[in-house]
């Protein structure tokens, strides 16, 4: 690693992901109950949900106001997604899925505030979300269908000779689901924020500063898109997995 010379290129794109206690010194130990920067930004996500969905719908207007419209739009969007993808009987999981969607959406968007912290860039967070979905779906699958849930892995539309091979592939892909489900989200958010930081670091060099600022603006716009899309992707994949659990037969 070259020594940082002339105050120049020494960007640390990963520093923004450091977890530190919100109160006290930066070096203080982080226990499981310590209130950290991650805690703070998750709490902001909760507050945003409360602001939009509790305060925003206070009027209960038959003709909705602006905020209530947005809340109803989000509600309708996810409700329709669950119903269309996973079926009507999946609607009792709607609060759970809506919780996931809103947490990811607000955590992603709030992380776009400069100097903020992005909880969804951490694999620990997304892995809990992903494996939570995985275990929920698996348990629901066995409770609803009993051993019949295993027919998910037995592709009855394929030729008999291929079925055992396909079963192995299906089982592997089933167990890879939570991994890809969680790494996709964390990876996207982490990569985006790291790239932003790298571009921002180049702004210190006068020659490329305009280019780097343009790059920051462009990547920022992309990240706004990615924030929403990743929340959507995570949610719709949850619905797809739930559909497999409720209706395992191909």
């Amino acid at each position: 690693m070259a020594e940082p010379s002339e105050g120049g290129l020494s960007f640390h794109p990963m520093d923004q992901f450091i977890i530190k206690p919100l109160f006290g010194d930066a070096g203080d130990p982080v226990y499981w109950h310590t209130i950290t920067n991650s805690t703070f930004w998750m709490a902001l996500a909760v507050l945003s949900v409360v602001a939009l969905f509790v305060l925003g719908t206070k009027g209960r207007g038959i003709v909705p106001g602006r905020t209530q419209s947005v809340a109803e739009l989000a509600y309708g969007f996810v409700h329709k997604m669950v119903e269309d993808v996973a079926g009507k009987d999946a609607l009792k999981f709607f609060p759970y899925i809506f919780t996931l969607f809103l947490f990811i959406l607000f955590a992603n968007f709030l992380a776009l505030i400069p100097t903020s912290f992005s909880p969804t860039s951490h694999i620990a967070v997304t892995a809990i979300l992903g494996f939570g979905v995985f275990f929920t779906v698996t348990i629901v699958g066995f409770v609803k269908n009993g051993p019949g849930f295993l027919s998910l892995f037995w592709v009855s539309s394929a030729p008999m000779a291929l079925r055992p091979i396909l079963a192995v592939i299906e089982v592997i892909s089933y167990f890879v689901r939570p991994v890809s489900h969680s790494i996709r989200l964390a990876g996207n958010i982490m990569a985006g924020h790291a790239v932003l930081k790298v571009f921002a670091g180049f702004a210190a060099v006068t020659a490329v500063a305009p280019l780097s600022i343009l790059g920051v603006v462009a990547i920022y716009g992309l990240e706004v898109l990615v924030s929403a899309i990743q929340a959507y992707v995570f949610t719709i994949l949850t619905c797809v997995y739930l559909k497999d659990a409720l209706h395992p037969h191909h």
């Binding site: 991650s38 947490f103 620990a124």
Partner: peptide, 16 residues
Amino acid sequence: WFANQIFWLLVTLVAI
């Protein structure tokens, strides 16, 4: 940092 994040994530999810 895992334990801390997991704990606060669960708190957040339950709250939402």
